[in-house]
Design a protein around this nucleic acid. Structure first.
Length: 258
DNA sequence: ATGGCTGCTTTGAGCAGA
């Protein structure tokens, strides 16, 4: 089974990129972040016409998440949960479903804006609640957490570690939260394999970020430790980032024998 | 040091992203 995560930065702007890509890559499950659409505007019919069923939770302007499943291989998302039952949140950042024997969660972690800000505190509290909830699901079906974590876990994941040292996305409390997620029984699928140095998943639109490869690895696929041995590959696909009018994020793909 | 793109919005300057 091939799963992927992609922050599309507006599904309205990126629908063609997304449908082209999932078909070309034969993706079975894709977790989408920053749809920026209310549910009545979600392109159910367009996705259905290319063979994908969808579960989604959105709002106007900001946030918004979705899980798309390839009908011919994995069917429809089942037992869909919107949000975190342990955390009241008006922001639409989390959706989970059973797909192909896995409990798949799509997450759009808060950005945090600046260390010490109100938004940063919200980010840490949001992650703490996510850790608590996912920990409670350890005995259920194997979990997969796909999303834009807005955390670069390691200096390897940062184009210029000195410049980013201690800044939001790279601060110690955020990295500690990432470690806590791993400690609830996950592996970082990307780091199970040899990867090129300076592998990133996001590049600033400004200052020729992509051309200079001035990026961060903040989009991740965490896979339940119980099935770590079934992970066959994990890679970042930079190609969609080079298209006209791209998202600022590239998709991350993970292949699991399941 | 600043802002540099992009998408969005009670359509137009300001917010937010990362």
């Amino acid at each position: 089974m091939r799963l992927a995560t992609w922050n599309v930065n507006s599904l309205r702007m990126r629908l063609d990129h997304l449908t082209d890509w999932v078909q070309a890559q034969q993706v079975d499950v894709v977790a989408v972040q920053e749809t920026k659409l209310t549910d009545d505007k979600f392109p159910v019919a367009e996705l259905d016409s290319v063979g994908y069923a969808s579960a989604f939770s959105g709002q106007k302007t900001y946030n918004g998440v979705a899980l798309l499943t390839r009908r011919s291989t994995v069917g429809e998302p089942a037992n869909v949960t919107v949000g975190n039952p342990l955390f009241d949140d008006e922001q639409k950042r989390l959706i989970s479903a059973d797909v192909g024997g896995l409990r798949v969660t799509c997450a759009y972690f808060p950005n945090g804006q600046e260390v010490g800000s109100e938004k940063y505190d919200y980010k840490l509290a949001w992650i703490d609640a996510l850790v608590q909830w996912l920990d409670s699901l350890r005995d259920g079906p194997p979990r997969v957490l796909l999303g834009d974590y807005n955390i670069a876990p390691d200096s390897r994941d940062v184009h210029d570690p000195a410049q980013w040292d201690g800044k939001v996305l790279c601060s110690e409390p955020e990295r500690e939260r990432f470690t806590r997620l791993l400690q609830t029984g996950f592996v970082d699928a990307f780091r199970l394999f040899d990867q090129a140095e300076k592998s990133f998943s996001w590049w600033d639109y400004r200052m020729l970020g992509f051309r200079r490869n001035a990026g961060l690895r903040i989009d991740h696929a965490l896979v339940d430790s119980r099935i770590a041995g079934q992970v066959r590959a994990c890679r970042i696909d930079r190609e969609p980032r080079a298209l006209e009018k791209p998202s600022d994020h590239a998709p991350v793909v993970v292949d699991i024998d399941a």
